[in-house]
């Protein structure tokens, strides 16, 4: 799936990627790639600005952690982020169901 098709959903995907574990930027990208069997072709550069937007919105927070001798900026979901994930997940499911109904009827 190309980057253009993901535009508008990138923040939802990042929230979903952080739902279970705290992750740093590269780990988030790897996780999304693995979970989609490589189908998600993210413009990797767009992930970092998106994380900044989520952080400014209070949906994630971040801190530096040392791992394997390297400092990594690790992101974690906040309460507000959990609520937004839940809300956007419901919106996405509604959209899929609605579009599915129309396509099945055609």
């Amino acid at each position: 799936m190309e980057g253009d098709a993901l535009r508008g959903h990138l923040e939802l995907l990042l929230l979903a990627a952080l739902a279970r574990d705290d992750r740093h930027g590269y780990a988030l990208i790897e996780w999304l790639r693995d979970r989609s069997d490589g189908a998600l072709d993210l413009g990797e550069g767009s992930v970092y600005p998106a994380l900044r937007r989520l952080e400014a919105a209070g949906c994630v927070n971040s801190s530096w952690r040392t791992d394997g001798g390297r400092r990594k900026r690790v992101y974690r979901l906040t309460k507000r982020g959990e609520e937004r994930l839940r809300s956007e997940r419901e919106g996405w499911n509604d959209l899929v169901r609605t579009v599915g109904l129309v396509l099945e009827a055609s």
Binding site: H24, G25, E44, R70, R71, K72, R73
Partner: peptide
């Protein structure tokens, strides 16, 4: 911060 984060991205990659 941003440059440090992208530098870390390079190292991880």
């Amino acid at each position: 911060r941003f440059v440090a984060e992208v530098r870390e991205h390079f190292e991880s990659a």
